[in-house]
């Protein structure tokens, strides 16, 4: 069994809410983890000459059900409880291991994915597999128990990392003392960049959830920013900027561009009014609902524009006391369980 330290050292894995619900995470880990990450390294071995009686003693003392047989460091067989039972029934416990051991060996490599070991364990229905290195030398043994334990530790680690992230973020506004703390996120949106359209809004939404915002607040911000983001992509000359300022009780969003500006703001605010090109409409944009949606979903909105100069869209969403980011959400409060 690998130490927790070794497994916990594995980096770069983030579990989203979706993952957490999803069983395929285990499948992913079965490919992600290597056999050497979870195998038992401290293996008791026997020699081909050892009498079966001594094997019986060893298995009993170490509470294991089998052992690999090494001849000059080469793996030549495996001896199990079943082989012992056969020797006992023949009253032949003085015979050497070589007489009863299984020589038809099924092995795996330490650098293989866990899934390889799982496949073989299931295929041949044995309890344990010897693990070899690239020089075919025995480096460990792997059982179904090792695999289960390894995957559970990795999943637990995933959760802890995400929980720590959430815990830190959701306490940000409590931990930092000032008269007025704000978190500012800035995004540059390129004109015509439909491929990345929606990325800024989904990043902002995720940040808000981490900060402890309610799903409704995060969703409202996400929708408002998405519409503004797509407006920059579709309607501007050179793209534009989004600045989101998060305070414990208020989210302010400022979207600016340098042209072409809106000819008639009153028209632009009317549901169904659109100046989008046919190509853009074919993609499903240009319904003329963007600004109208924004107005519906935010608490305050100011739109100013000068033809030839650019457009400035200011929006804010107010969080009531019970939605404030300053209040720690008890479900993400894992104080005491995390040690850094």
């Amino acid at each position: 069994m690998t130490t927790d330290q070794e497994l916990y050292g594995r980096r770069g894995r983030i579990v989203t809410d979706q993952d957490a619900k999803d069983i395929t995470r285990v499948e992913e880990l079965a490919y992600d983890l290597k056999i050497q990450d979870v195998m038992t390294r401290d293996v008791s071995t026997v020699s081909p000459e050892m009498p079966m009686r001594n094997v019986l003693d060893m298995l009993r003392k170490r509470r294991i059900s089998g052992a690999p047989v090494l001849d000059n460091e080469n793996l030549v067989g495996i001896i199990s409880m079943e082989d012992l039972v056969r020797a006992m029934s023949m009253n032949d416990l003085n015979a050497p291991v070589a007489k009863y051991m299984t020589t038809n060996l099924i092995t795996v490599f330490g650098f293989d994915s866990l899934i390889k070991a799982l496949e073989k364990l299931i295929q041949v229905n044995v309890g344990r597999l010897p693990v070899l290195d690239e020089n075919n030398k025995l480096v460990g043994m792997i059982t179904k128990g090792d695999i289960t334990r390894g995957i559970l530790i990795a999943i637990q680690k995933d959760y802890q990392e995400e929980e720590v992230r959430r815990y830190r973020a959701s306490h940000l506004f409590e931990d930092i003392k000032s008269d007025r703390t704000t978190l500012v996120m800035r995004y540059h949106i390129k004109k015509g960049d439909f491929i990345n359209g929606g990325n800024a809004s989904s990043n902002i939404k995720r940040a808000l959830v981490r900060l402890g915002a309610s799903p409704q607040i995060a969703r409202r911000c996400g929708i408002a920013i998405y519409e503004a983001e797509m407006n920059l992509i579709i309607h501007t000359n050179n793209g534009g900027r989004i600045k989101v300022e998060i305070e414990p009780q208020k989210i302010t969003m400022l979207v600016t561009d340098d042209g072409p500006g809106i000819e008639n703001i009153e028209n632009a605010m009317k549901p169904g009014y659109s100046t989008a090109t046919n190509t853009v409409r074919e993609m499903g944009f240009g319904a003329g609902m963007g600004l109208f949606n924004i107005k519906r979903i935010v608490d305050n909105m100011e739109l100013t524009s000068a033809p030839g100069l650019g457009t400035r869209l200011w929006m804010s969403i107010i969080m009531e006391d019970d939605e404030s980011l300053r209040e720690a959400d008890s479900s993400t409060d894992i104080q005491g369980e995390t040690t850094q």
């Binding site: 439909f194 359209g197 929606g198 989904s202 969703r219 929708i223 998405y226 797509m230 993609m283 499903g284």
Partner: peptide, 11 residues
């Protein structure tokens, strides 16, 4: 196209 995914994920 790609943007339907952003919409579905946001909502």
């Amino acid at each position: 196209h790609l943007n339907i995914i952003a919409v579905a994920a946001l909502l």
